[in-house]
């Protein structure tokens, strides 16, 4: 039985609390889903940078469509894949605000490929948090552009045959090639050290925007235990072992200015 947020008795000592930027509500994410972890990291970063009152989030279409319920910052909800375009519209008319998109791999690497590449290439002052779980979570586990070769999904019942369905799309590698991007990194969030490292990367990506340097994106290799048909522990291990083989971790682009930022 899980304890619901609102049921925590007041007389208990608080040893670990919500960041101010994260709303005190239960999320709808499945157990073992990385969305919840990364939400918290984004919230902690917003708090640490003291930007809660001037941050605007752009939610995607995907499992994190309701992200706007889980933060205490202003939010809009974009059409599938269009978050970077919507964010560009907000940022260009509100240059004093901090604008971030939060997107899944179907959202960013399939239907929204054009929007993310052009936002990066223009050097739009945006921060993108990109959750790569190699599958379409929300619609019930169909193949994503990031689905691994041979991986069984509800739309690749015999495993992804790359000769037919194409190859895993490597967005960080592609985005790193754009002139307007200043910081593109691929991280993971499957154990404590990698979660800490991902938080640092997210902070750096926000700082890149706040310092007017250019476009920044943090890809986080994630999990979808529900649609991978694994338990949370197995999913974490699978992500760590299998996904990193196809999607090598590391910073694909980091300009000297970004390197100099204190994250």
């Amino acid at each position: 039985m899980s304890v619901r947020v609102k049921d925590i008795p007041e007389e208990m000592e608080v040893v670990y609390d919500f960041p101010e930027a994260v709303a005190k509500v239960d999320t709808h994410y499945c157990p073992g889903c990385v969305h919840g972890i990364v939400h918290r990291l984004v919230g902690e970063v917003i708090d640490e940078l003291g930007i809660r009152e001037r941050t605007i989030g752009v939610a995607p279409v995907g499992c994190s469509v309701l992200a706007y319920n889980y933060f205490t910052v202003d939010f809009v909800e974009a059409a599938h894949g269009r978050a970077p375009a919507m964010a560009a519209g907000i940022k260009r008319t509100s240059p004093d605000k901090v604008v971030f998109t939060y997107q899944g791999d179907g959202d960013l690497a399939a239907i929204g490929t054009a929007e993310i590449i052009h936002a990066a290439n223009r050097g739009d002052l945006l921060t993108t948090v990109f959750i790569n779980n190699a599958i379409y979570g929300m619609t019930g586990g169909q193949m994503a552009p990031t689905t691994l070769p041979g991986m069984v999904t509800t739309s690749t019942p015999t495993g992804r045959d790359c000769a037919v369905a194409g190859y895993p799309v490597k967005m960080s590698e592609i985005l790193a090639e754009t002139a307007g991007a200043v910081y593109i990194t691929r991280e993971t969030a499957t154990d404590i050290p990698s979660i800490r490292k991902t938080k640092k990367a997210i902070k750096r990506a926000f700082l890149a925007q706040m310092n007017g340097l250019g476009f920044a994106c943090v890809e986080v290799l994630s999990t979808c235990p529900t649609n991978w048909h694994q338990d949370p522990w197995e999913a974490m291990q699978w992500s760590k072992e299998k996904m990193t083989e196809v999607f090598p971790l590391g910073a694909y682009k980091m300009t000297d200015e970004v390197k100099a930022l204190k994250a």
């Binding site: 605007i56 375009a85 919507m86 560009a88 519209g89 907000i90 008319t93 509100s94 054009a114 929007e115």
Partner: peptide, 12 residues
């Protein structure tokens, strides 16, 4: 992209 930029700016 144009209409979604417009949408974003309108929200702002």
């Amino acid at each position: 992209a144009a209409i979604n930029m417009v949408y974003g700016a309108a929200c702002a």
